[in-house]
Simulated scan of single mutants.
Amino acid sequence: MTVQDQPAPFSAPEATPPLLPRTLMQPEHEAFRRTVRRFFETEVAPYTEQFERDGHIPRQLWNRAGELGLLLTAIPEEYGGMGGDRLFSTVLMEEQGRVLASATGFMLHSDIVAPYILHYGTEEQKRRYLPGMATGERVGAIAMTEPGAGSDLQGIKTRAEDKGDHYLLSGSKIFITNGYLADLVIVVARTGNTGKGSRDLSLLLVETNSEGFSKGKPLKKMGMKGQDTCELFFSDVRVPKENLLGQEGQGFRMLMQELPWERLIIAIEAQAAAEAVFDLTRQYVKERQAFGQAVMDFQVTRHKLAELQTEISLGRTYVDECTRAMLGGKLTPQAASAAKYWVSEMCSRVMDACVQLHGGYGYMWEYPVARAFVDNRAHRIYGGTNEIMKELISRAL
């Protein structure tokens, strides 16, 4: 992507003033936001159609994000990261949502894959993999879901057979974000035979250039068409024992420890998308004329927007409080599950209403509201379906 062929930057509408003042971010986070916003407006959003045609973003965009310091923002500097807190990650998610950019897999790479290596990896593993992930030279993915095991992680069939100094990995994974461009994949595999489900699972760091490792083509999805998502196949892939992440048989425990943050990420992204589409719709109904007046002038429109703004504001307050709890180490799995469940459902309600307020134009693919409608439907599915979220919340009752 060169300056000569670069399309015009994305122009977002004026943000709707919040019903309550927001107190979560500090000046350093807002200063960082300016860099992030410029990146997404000029180097991501204008290329949405190209990403959709390709089914993934180009490798040079990963390199550019790394060059600007936008990857691994919450990873210590000694491993190539920015050394910031997770509010810097939150800024990235919010700005990605502001321009409705669904194609980039930066968050999974930086805030899901990298933390597994930081929290459970050996010193050698951290120094081997994290610096390259920080520059964008090495793209990370995590492979949990299988054709026959989605939210039920204990149903995983992919197996890593102990061969002394290495494992032989066999099986397949599906719906893997960043899978097509990935250089490193954390694979959830069965290493034991106790029959006790969770105690038999381990996490392996698998390099994608390993013999026997293959990738399917980018999957053709209903939404998020530009996001890199594919199937992965393992045919007796030799994985050195030193690539075991953490301890053998502790994979399920590690997954459970990291999933609350992953689910809060989904809530943060859904919240940002709901706010962005609301702003677009508010601008549209002010400009769109019907029966001799702006659509905004009809009471039914104003009341619908009031309903939506109220729901969005409730979501914003809860997401920010969950984020505050996470920063203090007090985010419970139930609170994160509730955030993922309620905010993703709210986001879908907002998207549906905003398509309706756009009328026929809301059904046209070139209108951002149409893309957002299908892109954000996935929030209710990945990270554990919302039905699973309700079950997790209910267990604490």
Rank of each mutant, 00 (worst) to 15 (best):
Y341C: 11
V99M: 07
G362H: 08
Y79W: 07
K173M: 00
E321H: 15
E287M: 08
V3M: 13
K163V: 02
I174D: 05
I142W: 01
S11D: 15
I312V: 13
E28D: 15
I312C: 07
G164S: 09
V36W: 03
P9F: 02
L201M: 10
L181A: 13
L201H: 03
I312H: 05
L153I: 07
E366A: 11
Q271E: 06
Q247Y: 07
C322T: 03
G197M: 05
R324V: 04
A12C: 06
I381R: 05
K225S: 05
E52I: 11
A290H: 14
E211T: 11
E95F: 03
Y284P: 13
A134L: 02
R59H: 14
E269M: 09
R324S: 13
L201T: 02
I174W: 01
V185F: 01
I266G: 05
D228A: 00
C354V: 01
A65V: 03
P76G: 02
Y120E: 11
M93E: 11
G164D: 07
P368I: 01
D152A: 06
E14L: 09
R138Q: 07
A339W: 06
E211R: 13
F373P: 00
A274Y: 04
G384H: 10
G121E: 07
R190K: 15
I117M: 02
K157E: 13
M364F: 08
F106S: 06
F10V: 08
D165F: 09
R238M: 00
E211L: 01
Q26L: 12
I112K: 06
G329C: 05
